[in-house]
Structures are given as structure tokens and as C-alpha cells.
């Protein structure tokens, strides 16, 4: 029953998004985000606690302000992802910085690329934009509500971008994708029950090791991406230079070194724009 209610609420929200012009839809989604911030007390507490622990706010009042702005931001991210066709081909809407070494990989059809990011800015738009070079597969955990999941997938602009489930009977499919010269996009900032403890804002956080292991095993190049929201429907997409790690024979040390680098890059982006990060996730457990 709850799933059905969520599904119709999502349909209603999408109806509003479709009806309004982009700027108004974006404002509407921001307002929905504010409402969510007010209504979802448990999530709000997690967000404030995370912001304070990360040290990006000096006191609880500032943490609340950042948390509210970040929740508004997530609302706009949803709308801007749904209306991404309006910005993807406009160089004034997506300003891109790609280092030469990454550019060379993107232009080589035989070369796979691991692109890592976090729930910062508009991460999905980054994947969609990069799909102009080669197919992009974004790894995602299935939503708890299969009806909403189906709805979300049906609304995502395709281009060369697709979502693939995190769990699948074929254990070698990530390796195959990279071998076929595709981009594999991963978000590494969710709590990973079986992950490695790696400092995130100075505090140990269980971190997914998949990206690091894929790099070490397939030797596919890897970079970190951020897609910062600079203004309504305007973004700065920045890719880091290639992150390379030679295997030392000590798997844990190799993985930890890579994850430290990735977490560091994500922290850097969040410190610059803390109101563009998904703080409501229980990252430290």
C-alpha cells in the first residue's frame, strides 16, 4: 500500500515538473525539498550531525542552514536531471574542464574508463554528458520501491547513459564493460557494510572498494568527477587527472591509498559547496 502511495506521489510530482517551465519547475522542486527538510525529522538530525562532524559548519545553526539548502538542492537536482536535455548540448549551460590525459582516454574507443563521484552537485548529469564520448553505465542500488524505480528509469534521458543494477548474476559484467571501452560510473560515498574503513572528513567511514579494485585488477584508467551547480540549469563539470596506483602486492594498502585519494577529492568539492551534498545519509556508523 505504501509503495502504491509513493508511486502516485512520484507521478504527481512528475506531472508538476512536466507542466512547468524549467526555472519554475526547479523552484517548485526546491520548495518540495524545503518541505521534506521540515517533515523528515530523523533525516534532518542525521544531516545536521553529519555536517557538524565533517566540520563544514561552525555551529548547529549554520549546520541547519547548510542542511536545508542542501535538501533544496537535491530537489532541484531531480528536476534538472529530468530536464537535462535542455542543458546537455549547450556549452554555456555545462562548462567542462577535462585534463589532457583523461581527454585522450575519452577519445580512444577501445579504452574503458572508471569515473568516480559522490552524491554532490548533479552527479547524474555528469554521466549523461560524458556519454557523448562512449557509452556510460552507472551502477545503482535498486530503489526500495520497484514501482518508483520503474517510473524513474522510464523518465531518464537515455543518450548513451544507462543505469545498471549493483547486483547481478554475472560477476564479470563490470570487467566486460571496461574491456569493451565503456565508462563505468560509480558513487563511492554511501555506507558500505563490508567496505574498508577510510577517513572521510577525518573520521573512519566504511567505504566501497569496487572502484579501487576494478582499477587494480583491470588496470583501466580512473578519474574523479564533480558536476557543480553554478546557477539554475548551469553546471561546472570537472574531471580530475587520471588517478593511478601501481599494485604493491598489498591489496588492502593499494585499495586504501586509492580510496583516500577519492575521498580527498570529494571532501575538497564538498568544502567548496557544502550546500550541494547529500548530507542525510548515515555515512558514519
Amino acid at each position: 500500500m505504501l509503495h502504491l502511495l509513493e508511486y502516485w506521489a512520484a507521478r504527481l510530482a512528475l506531472f508538476g515538473v512536466d507542466l512547468l517551465p524549467p526555472a519554475a519547475a526547479s523552484r517548485w522542486a526546491g520548495w518540495l525539498g524545503s518541505l521534506w527538510w521540515t517533515a523528515d525529522r530523523p533525516r534532518r538530525r542525521v544531516a545536521i550531525s553529519n555536517i557538524l562532524r565533517a566540520g563544514v559548519a561552525g555551529d548547529p545553526a549554520e549546520a541547519r542552514a547548510i542542511g536545508r539548502a542542501a535538501t533544496r538542492h537535491m530537489g532541484t537536482v531531480l528536476v534538472e536531471s529530468l530536464k537535462s536535455a535542455l542543458v546537455l548540448d549547450d556549452p554555456d549551460r555545462v562548462r567542462v574542464r577535462i585534463p589532457d590525459d583523461v581527454q585522450a582516454v575519452l577519445e580512444d574507443p577501445d579504452q574503458g574508463l572508471i569515473v568516480v563521484s559522490g552524491h554532490f552537485g548533479n552527479w547524474e548529469l555528469a554521466g549523461q554528458w560524458l556519454s557523448r564520448y562512449k557509452p556510460v553505465a552507472g551502477i545503482s542500488r535498486p530503489m526500495n520501491n520497484p514501482r518508483v524505480q520503474e517510473l524513474a528509469l522510464s523518465r531518464r534521458p537515455r543518450h548513451g547513459f544507462r543505469m545498471i543494477p549493483k547486483y547481478d548474476p554475472d560477476p564479470g559484467r563490470f570487467i566486460k564493460l571496461l574491456g569493451d571501452g565503456e565508462i563505468l560510473a560509480l558513487l563511492v560515498d554511501q555506507h558500505a557494510r563490508q567496505g574498508l574503513d577510510v577517513p572521510f572528513f577525518g573520521h573512519p567511514a566504511k567505504t566501497h572498494t569496487t572502484a579501487a579494485m576494478l582499477h587494480l585488477v583491470t588496470r583501466a584508467p580512473m578519474c574523479f568527477a564533480t558536476c557543480r551547480r553554478a546557477a539554475p540549469m548551469t553546471f561546472d563539470l570537472t574531471l580530475s587527472p587520471l588517478i593511478e596506483r601501481q599494485r604493491s602486492g598489498d591489496r588492502s594498502a593499494d585499495v586504501e591509498a586509492i580510496l583516500l585519494a577519492l575521498n580527498g577529492l570529494l571532501e575538497e568539492a564538498i568544502r567548496r559547496d557544502p550546500d550541494q551534498y547529500l548530507w542525510g545519509h548515515r555515512r558514519w556508523r
Partner: peptide
């Protein structure tokens, strides 16, 4: 699974001292 298979491949290469072509 897709993660543990990576652990296996890493360890196989270390055990046998070779670099395999993942594809």
C-alpha cells in the same frame, strides 16, 4: 559476485606472478 571476483583475480595474479588480460 562482481566485487569478490575482483578479489579473486587480484589474488590469482599475485599467487602466480602474472598479469592476466581481464577480458
Amino acid at each position: 559476485d562482481s566485487l569478490t571476483i575482483l578479489d579473486v583475480l587480484y589474488d590469482v595474479e599475485e599467487e602466480f606472478g602474472i598479469a592476466l588480460e581481464p577480458k
